[in-house]
Design a protein around this nucleic acid. Structure first.
Length: 420
DNA sequence: TCTGGGGTCCTAGGGCGA
DNA sequence: TCTGTCGCCCTAGGACCC
């Protein structure tokens, strides 16, 4: 059996942990730059505010309904997430942390356990210890566990936030209830095509012929179908090492000059190298991309990316900035208004299994230098020590007008309670 | 004025060596 | 030596997830 545990309206719930007065009130969280609405409390959902909506288009609705609006506070969400995951890990030795607010647990050898009761224990423990409400769905496959979780969340009065698909009857009932676009793994494009063939529910989907599903939706679709049939085809993935690391941003204004872009791209490359060092990996390739603003149809559009290969695997900020700058030089074109750029590093290998080359060697001083920079930055504050090519004057700033305090990760922002 | 960021997996198609 | 075929690898693009 698998369980999918999902935090309810995670970002909104994180904000509520330290602001209990927000319970029962509409709360939304904005993306970087305060651009889009990326999380909503149930009350905000009830107002019809859609996921991913541009904040400026919903300003009036937000104001009129006195919705509490927050910039995303990843320091807070990341910390609360790891607390939730640590608690979940106590309930099964097999855990896959799927995202910041979701985890799969596997229960092998729990056949004689009362899972519903166990689910309730998980739920109360997490709420009591962190203040974050969760939903729990049990089922024989991961995709069905997703379905069970959805039912638990949708009918909290009947399920108390825990639901178990443990019989054929319950599986069929759930599949008939679930709209095809709500199946995990069926996105807008697939659901449109399925509906053209009059496949409207998960039940219709599992009754489609295997050959047709394979032909139209590749092995991905076929695997989903098997999972919904109760035949486990997706296993628990416990390895956490990443295959790519990215730092990409939309800019608060348009850039036209190469130098401006170079400075931002260098900073993205440094950020990637820091992430690499944190997970003790090297990369062998780096991709740089630039975009103009695709929402401004009247402006000339340009979008390109380029892959640059490293001569030897590296995680040195200096090397990566060099590669990124070389790539940017090749793809930059004058006369465009650039709105977004990014750096993605790939071909990741562990630091200790480095492959040396015959004629090129990495700089022996770089690892020591990087270690020192990382240590200093950790000690005296993030990003105090920089490379000269970075934004030394920090002329740009992300819009984060509604940022809540980093209650759990910064001593100066800790919650203070005064007695009268 | 203002439209996010960070990932994974799969397939098709071309290059290339056996 | 030349040519055809097969399979592997790489890349681009498209789908999906949160």
């Amino acid at each position: 059996m698998f369980a999918l545990i999902d935090c309810n309206n995670f970002y909104a719930s994180c904000e509520r942990v330290f602001r209990p007065d927000l319970n029962g009130k509409a709360v939304v969280i904005l993306s970087n730059n305060d651009g889009c609405i990326i999380a909503r409390s149930n009350e905000a959902k009830a107002l019809g505010i859609p996921m991913g909506a541009p904040a400026f288009k919903w300003k009036e609705v937000l104001e009129k309904n006195k919705v509490h609006v927050y910039s995303s506070n990843y320091a807070l969400y990341g910390d609360l997430s790891s607390r939730v995951m640590n608690i979940l890990a106590r309930f099964s030795p097999d855990i896959e942390i799927y995202s910041i607010d979701e985890a799969f647990l596997q229960f092998t050898g729990f056949e004689h356990f009362d899972l519903l009761n166990y689910g309730n224990q998980i739920r109360t423990t997490v709420v009591k210890s962190t203040g974050i409400p969760i939903s729990v769905g049990f089922a024989p496959t991961k995709v069905l566990a997703k379905v069970a979780n959805r039912i638990a969340k949708k009918f909290p009065e009947k399920t108390n936030g825990v639901y178990c698909i443990d019989s054929e009857e319950k599986r069929i009932k759930a599949l008939k209830w679930l709209a095809v676009e709500d199946i995990w793994g069926i996105g807008p494009s697939y659901s449109k095509r399925l509906k053209l063939h009059k496949i409207n529910t998960a039940y219709d989907f599992v009754n489609a012929p295997n050959e047709w599903v394979r032909k139209e939706f590749s092995v991905v679709g076929l695997r989903l179908k098997r999972e919904l049939e109760g035949k486990s085809s997706l296993s628990l993935e416990q390895s956490s090492s990443k295959k790519a690391i990215a730092t990409t941003r939309s800019f608060e204004k348009m850039y036209t000059q190469f130098e401006e872009l170079r400075e931002r791209v260098s900073t993205f490359a440094v950020s990637c190298s820091e992430k690499l060092r944190r997970q003790k990996s090297h990369c062998s390739m780096l991709m740089v991309f630039v975009h103009t603003n695709s929402h401004r149809k009247e402006q000339a559009q340009y979008s390109r990316n380029i892959m640059v290969k490293a001569v030897y695997p590296t995680n040195s900020s200096i090397d990566l900035v060099r590669l990124a700058t070389a790539g940017l030089k090749k793809i930059y074109k004058e006369g465009y208004h650039y709105k977004k750029a990014g750096v993605i590093v790939m071909g990741l290998t562990p630091e200790h299994t480095k492959q040396f080359t015959l004629f090129n060697e990495d700089h022996p001083k770089h690892p020591v230098l990087m270690q020192t920079i990382d240590r200093l930055n950790q000690k005296i504050g993030k990003q105090k020590i920089k490379l000269a090519c970075q934004d030394l004057g920090r002329t740009w700033k992300m819009n984060q007008e509604k940022l809540s305090p980093r209650y759990t990760t910064n001593l100066s922002e800790i919650l203070a309670i005064y007695a009268k």
